[in-house]
């Protein structure tokens, strides 16, 4: 009886109208993304199943199945590139989170000249990565660059930075830390400023010392921000390219070559598109897991309506 008086789907029409408008507005951008990002990634995958060498066009583009992947995992240069990427990620992300936390704590206390400080902190983040890398390379030039000169003055023997398979990591990591710590610091600062200051007052009343307050209040409440910063930085460090390309070119030899750089030279210097695509897919899959983790961390809320 009741159903008879409530026509099914009544009123749905204007929601449908709104939905249609929604799609119409969203589609151009989403279609563009699909065209320039999703379609290519599928193409990469397809390409990775073929032998495709632009220097040997007479070979054609035969389907080879998983052969490129087999080659990749058997390739010592790729495996060491993975290792280099891991080393770089670990060193850079650890230092960036540590330094970022310190800078954020310092900035949280700044009352005067906040704008100036913020500008100073933003500058390294905002300049082109290659510019940052060049500046640091200049400072670490051997034998007479600033870093070496400073070490000599301190009475130490400076290494030949970029010619040394181990020492070359130092300017690489330092440049990346200098460039990206500001971003981490700003994320963490936003997290710090969300912490209710009354908590510290309560802790003061309870007689908790500074260190105790830090471990009992600041760190736990900063965890979400730390996690977000960690995921973004880890993802970025995994994709590292610009810094290494500019500073060491992966050298000496291939001692500092990360996966992105190896993939790049496979593709655009050796023109081995099939094999290079297989490397690209592997990079993509790893990055995708970071992306999934980030999306989970940001939480469902980020994708539903309501203030972000």
């Amino acid at each position: 009886m009741k159903n008879a008086r409530t026509p099914p789907g009544s009123g749905a029409s204007w929601l449908r109208e709104e939905a249609r408008l929604g799609w119409a507005l969203a589609l151009p951008a989403l279609a563009t993304i699909a065209l320039v990002a999703v379609f290519p990634i599928l193409w990469t995958f397809w390409e990775s199943l073929h032998l495709h060498d632009l220097r040997m066009p007479w070979l054609g583009r035969p389907f080879v199945g998983a052969a490129n992947y087999a080659e990749a995992f058997g390739d010592p240069r790729f495996r060491s590139a993975l290792g280099h990427t891991g080393v770089f990620m670990t060193a850079a992300v650890t230092l960036e989170l540590g330094a970022g936390l310190l800078v954020a704590l310092a900035l949280d206390r700044v009352s005067r000249g906040r704008g100036m400080v913020r500008t100073a902190v933003l500058l390294p983040w905002a300049i082109p990565t290659v510019v940052a890398a060049l500046i640091w390379r200049f400072m670490f030039e051997s034998p007479a660059g600033l870093a070496s000169a400073a070490l000599v003055r301190l009475g130490a023997a400076p290494p030949t930075w970029f010619a040394d398979a181990l020492a070359a990591w130092i300017p690489l990591v330092l440049a990346d830390v200098w460039k990206t710590t500001p971003f981490v610091a700003l994320l963490l600062l936003a997290g710090l400023q969300n912490i209710d200051k009354a908590l510290y007052e309560a802790a003061d009343v309870d007689g908790a010392g500074r260190w105790r307050q830090f471990t009992a209040i600041t760190l736990p409440l900063l965890r979400p921000a730390l996690l977000v910063a960690f995921l973004f930085r880890a993802l970025d460090a995994f994709r590292v390219f610009d810094v290494v390309y500019v500073m060491t070119g992966g050298g000496p030899g291939t001692a500092t070559e990360p996966v992105a750089l190896y993939t790049f030279s496979t593709l655009l210097q050796n023109l081995r598109f099939g094999f290079g695509s297989a490397l690209s897919v592997i990079v993509f899959v790893v990055a995708f897991f970071f992306a999934l983790a980030s999306i989970r961390v940001l939480g469902r809320g980020a994708f539903l309506d309501g203030p972000a």
Binding site: L30, I41, T44, F264, F288, A291, I295, F303
Partner: peptide, 28 residues
């Protein structure tokens, strides 16, 4: 606007923003 699939699209957009550029260099 209210329509279905919004959350999925937003997640899609975020996922694409995390694509490693190197992964799409060859097809591009």
């Amino acid at each position: 606007l209210r329509f279905r699939g919004k959350a999925v699209m937003l997640a899609f957009v975020l996922a694409v923003s995390m694509f490693p550029q190197i992964s799409i260099v060859s097809p591009l």
